[in-house]
Amino acid sequence: MIEFKNVSLIYPNRVEALKNIDLTIEKGEFVVIVGMSGAGKSTLMKCINRMVIPTGGEVIVDNQVISHLKESKLRKLRTQIGIIFQDYNLVKRMSVLRNVMVGRLGHTSTFNSLIGRFPQEDLQLAMKNLKRIGIDEKAYVRADQLSGGQQQRVSIARVLTQQPKIILADEPVASLDPPTSHQVMRDLKRVSKEDGLTTIVNLHFIDLAMEYADRVIGMREGEIVFDGPIAEVTEKTFEEIYGRPIREEEKRGE
């Protein structure tokens, strides 16, 4: 489904963000990537929807080598990949439902989307996804009226409404408090299992990783230093990934 073949990436400022990455992620897996900041987690993720282009090797998504896709093909690829951002990236002055409908833009003709005419089944889909996340009663509330946790759940509904095959979540709970973090992670895991989506989450909280991941990938200095199912992961594994003992602030807590 997603394949990295000997991928390396050197930024213009000579930073080697990725070094010879070989990686295969199967359809439907819930993968958590852990590592300290600067380990290359974000860069790895950005390679998948080509927000950055590797300087060496190939990234294959859905049997397509994506490095050479043309603009229109790229947009098509991106409609297949949903993203959840650390800061939710909602339009604050728009209602929750409209924000969720942003997920349909890639599937709607430009003209219809400009005048705000969406097919009824798309609206039904958006509402259904809000219901799955449990915030359907906020559908017509402006996004800036919601708490951080609610906003992040809106962005999960937005991603679901996009009907992607892959979800990328880049530090989705970094701006949230512990109970809300757990709720967001729980919702994310549940819906991605229900829809059979391949999900890749960047986290730096090890307890969240251990609780929700199917598979853990550990990164340090641009290299994969651990890759295995959750059953094989212990706190010792994290100490190996981090290269030092685990600190208390690296756990989210309850």
């Binding site: 990949i81 990236n89 833009l105 400009l114 937005r158």
Partner: peptide, 14 residues
């Protein structure tokens, strides 16, 4: 940030 999100989801300039 919302602009970034829309672009990442395959939205065009209009």
């Amino acid at each position: 940030r919302p602009i970034q999100a829309i672009q990442a989801m395959g939205g065009n300039m209009p």
